[in-house]
């Protein structure tokens, strides 16, 4: 119990620390939301100062942080000056898009990695394990950036898949099946790249933990009972091996999320 309490307190401290640092990071960048309006000749310096005062930007950083922390406690994450609305709905719609991209990537990576990892652990050192390991090492050595560029090149050359944005023009007129197909086509390249990017690490971990579990006494005992190899692998060894891998799952979501930061740049690039 005390362990959980301690972890929760640690987590809370971590959240506060990260939020303070993020706040400080934003402050580090020069200018604020109204800095750009300086260029507008119709706005005087006094008006801008008034706007700053109205939105509380003239107050020192700690005061603003406390204001923000209070609003978070009320369940509001702030207010967007640019869109003139609370920021939460804006965040949700974007988070949904990000999840639409990362969730299939993580899912596919697991669906492919677990059979490959289990299979090559079961046949350790045999020819198929060697081929799988070789392929995985090769994939690990290819930078994700190059993969992304390569897939873009292929889709541009073949004209088969769209290369930017998330929906086509006239999306709203499509039937639900058409909408599904449209979004799938747009997500195909980024999801493939994200999947291929996280696949090799995942396979290596599945294989390593499976190898460890397969050498443990309880597997030997089960084998001695005459349980079939397939059942042994998937019903006895895999659950035991998956336990440490759950941690990996959570960290991979974060990683995929991080990769998505690159996606807006792609979007900006290919709107010629």
């Amino acid at each position: 119990m005390s362990f959980f309490l301690r972890r929760i307190v640690h987590g809370a401290f971590l959240l506060v620390g990260v939020s303070i640092l993020s706040f400080a990071m934003i402050e580090l960048a020069p200018g604020d939301f109204f800095a750009e309006m300086r260029l507008n000749p119709q706005l005087s310096a006094e008006t801008l100062a008034g706007l700053r005062q109205q939105y509380g930007l003239d107050q020192p950083l700690p005061v603003r942080y406390l204001h923000w922390a209070k609003s978070v406690a009320r369940g509001e994450f702030g207010f967007s000056f640019a869109y003139n609305t609370p920021v939460a709905p804006l965040l949700w719609s974007r988070a949904r898009n990000t999840l639409l991209l990362t969730a299939p990537a993580v899912l596919f990576a697991w669906l492919i990695a677990v059979p490959i990892g289990v299979g090559s652990a079961a046949r350790q050192g045999k020819w198929d394990d060697r081929i799988a390991s070789g392929g995985i090492t090769a994939l690990l050595a290819i930078p994700e950036l190059l993969l992304a560029l390569g897939f873009l090149l292929i889709s541009l050359r073949t004209g088969y898949l769209p290369t930017g944005g998330m929906i086509s023009v006239g999306f709203s007129e499509l039937s639900w099946w058409g909408k599904f197909k449209d979004v799938t086509a747009h997500l195909a390249i980024p999801v493939t790249v994200l999947t291929l990017g996280s696949l090799p690490i995942l396979v290596r971990h599945v294989r390593a933990t499976m190898l460890e579990v397969l050498q443990s006494p309880f597997i030997n005992a089960a084998r001695a009972h005459g349980i079939s190899p397939r059942r042994l692998l998937f019903r006895h060894a895999l659950p035991a091996a998956l336990n440490p891998l759950i941690w990996w799952k959570s960290s991979l979501v974060g990683r995929a999320w991080d990769r998505c930061c690159l996606r807006p740049f792609w979007g900006a690039t290919f709107t010629w």
């Binding site: 090492t137 930078p143 190059l146 541009l156 740049f265 290919f270």
Partner: peptide, 27 residues
Amino acid sequence: QQYHVLISYWWMFIPGVALIPVFLSYF
């Protein structure tokens, strides 16, 4: 990042390809 470079000039990919042997040896 420019469209015409991406589809026309394959040798512009070489700096990315050069990373592969480096990464492979480190792994």
